[in-house]
Design a protein around this nucleic acid. Structure first.
Lengths: 165, 165
DNA sequence: GGACATACCAAACGTTCGTTCGCTAATCTG
DNA sequence: CAGATTAGCGAACGAACGTTTGGTATGTCC
């Protein structure tokens, strides 16, 4: 009945996603695990460290999902990106939601790193769409940047439209 | 150099949008207006009241924008809905962002009201898309519910893709 | 079996939070 | 001009916050 650092981080991800970082107290997080708030400090050294851990984990998941086959056609690569994005979102809802909406609560250096990671991830989509436009397989009037944002906005709202059935 | 209730609500909307409700203290809000935190209570009676005011204002703006011509074609009506949605978003960014992402910090009865208002707003989109499918002007394979959510997700991300130039 | 590490509790620390209170100075009203 | 209202200050309240500290059990390892 004992706990690890990973347990704490996982529970933190869940509460941060459900209530937001600033609305989650260390005492509430402890209660979630059947502990006192102060007992958490046996496993971690600050609340902010928890947010960093959850958000970086989210960033890592997306980054891994962006490793897309080099030789494939633009359509195949885009499909792979979209499928990967959805899989990450559906399998790790708490990290992802925290990554998407609580990154602003990070301190400056960490936030800058996360924004850079997000931009780089978006750039992969942009490049694939651009490839499709360049080789004629996508319509020529498609703007790679705008289209990528449209696609990601829709995928990020998967909670609202996806029904497992 | 004196302030009104509206001034306080407007400043609260700005800070809630930028930092989040729980990350905004009454003292910080006072500072924003050149006042002490305690002085705000001459104009309002609680912090939560401020959140309610900002969020309900956001809901009202969208609701008004959903008043769409009855006699028009589905395409015209959908275009009008989308244009209205974007105008609301671009002209009232702080209320809107607070409405979209801080509603969860409301207490139960208020949150229920806001969710109901959002669902009703979404239903207007759904009905118009459904009308277009029914009269044959939109493709028959279009699912009204899913499409509406796609449209709204993309419009809600306008900050990320719209460049005034 | 004695030293050490782990996992946690219980109490307390200093700070910040939302909010209240008594007050002052300025402005309006009759 | 007397009286009432208003906008705001400054100090204080109790509660909650993140965090520290000292202690207690329960193991583990030489």
């Amino acid at each position: 009945m004992t706990h690890t650092r990973s347990d704490v981080i996982r529970a933190a991800g869940r509460l941060f996603a459900e209530r937001g970082y600033h609305a989650t107290s260390m005492r509430a997080l402890g209660r979630e695990l059947g502990l006192l708030g102060s007992s958490l400090y046996a496993h971690i050294s600050s609340k902010e460290e928890l947010l960093v851990a959850v958000v970086e984990e989210g960033a890592r998941l997306f980054q891994e999902a962006a490793a897309v086959p080099e030789g494939a056609t633009a359509e195949e690569r885009l499909r792979s990106l979209m499928r990967g994005h959805l899989e990450v979102m559906l399998e790790n809802p708490h990290q992802v939601r925290t990554f998407l909406s609580e990154a602003r609560s990070l301190d400056d250096p960490h936030r800058a790193r996360i924004i850079a990671a997000r931009d780089q991830y978006e750039a992969v989509f942009r490049a694939v769409v651009g490839q499709g436009v360049a080789d004629g397989s996508f319509r020529p009037e498609v703007d790679a940047k705008t289209s990528s944002i449209f696609i990601l906005s829709t995928l990020n709202a998967v909670d609202r439209w996806y029904d497992p059935h």
